[in-house]
Nucleic acid binder design. Structure first.
Lengths: 141, 141
DNA sequence: CTACATGCAAATGCTTTGCAACCTA
DNA sequence: TAGGTTGCAAAGCATTTGCATGTAG
């Protein structure tokens, strides 16, 4: 997979991939950077960004462009949807099978050539739900 | 609407709102800035950002957070979906009625409290479709 | 008049990039 | 050894913010 593209499996690249799998969450480049640094203290943020880009182009990981500023990454490359907490940014997989036929519904009624779609749910994660129910809207004391 | 929130209808704010309506597209803050500047040359980008933020909080316009970096704004505040050209960034409304019941499908199978969802189609706009069909994948000669 | 708004410029946050040294195949 | 890769630092964008001045109500 790497060799076909004239790419090398460096210690950094390997570690980034392994740790993304182990985390099981949907970390940002920066969160991943922190995690990887515990094993390779001298790795740079730039290297993390470069590798995440390369790995997602190879289809080894998935780049998520959800709402909110920061990009996140997913070890799971299959088609699936996500839920994002509008309060803290936590991202979970959404338990909903891909809507396979939805793109066909636009056929003939748009000038665009559709190639895909993205569905994202928003809401409050358990932690932030609590904070909202119990009285104050702002930070707790 | 404005007075209830102790806000004022300044020349800048009024113009931003009017021009966003007239454009009928889904401009970024910067595109809107260019358009508004033709009428008010001394307006600043910061003012455009500040007003777009305020107007979207008031529900007078809609802030779009689609894939790709830049945020876009929509004069149409109703619930609807969009199609984005992955090549040039053009954004159109998607001719598809809102999936009203889709959020219910997650009920009971997620720890999140769902408050909404966003569906975005990706593809090529007519202009970029042509460029892709006709031979070269990269820039044309 | 007075509080909200503006223009300007500096600052921020995330991501990308140039470059010399480094390391994998 | 060659060429992809790294660490570092600087650069790039989009967006936000501090502050003195301007202005709507």
């Amino acid at each position: 997979m790497l060799e076909k593209n004239n790419l090398r499996m460096t210690r950094q690249r390997k570690l980034i991939l392994e740790i993304l799998h182990k985390m099981g969450t949907h970390p940002s480049a920066d969160e991943l950077y922190d995690a990887v640094r515990m094993h390779l203290p001298r790795i740079s943020l730039g290297t993390v960004y470069r590798n995440l880009e390369i790995l997602s182009e190879l289809g080894q990981i998935q780049k998520l462009e959800l709402g909110g500023a920061t990009r996140r990454f997913d070890w799971d490359t299959s088609k699936h949807y996500h839920i994002r907490c509008v309060e803290c940014g936590r991202v979970d997989d959404a338990p909903l099978a891909p809507l396979q036929k939805i793109e066909n519904e636009l056929y003939g009624s748009t000038v665009f050539t559709i190639i895909g779609h993205r569905l994202e749910f928003t809401g409050f994660c358990p932690k932030c739900s609590l904070r909202h129910q119990s009285g104050s809207v702002s930070a707790s004391p």
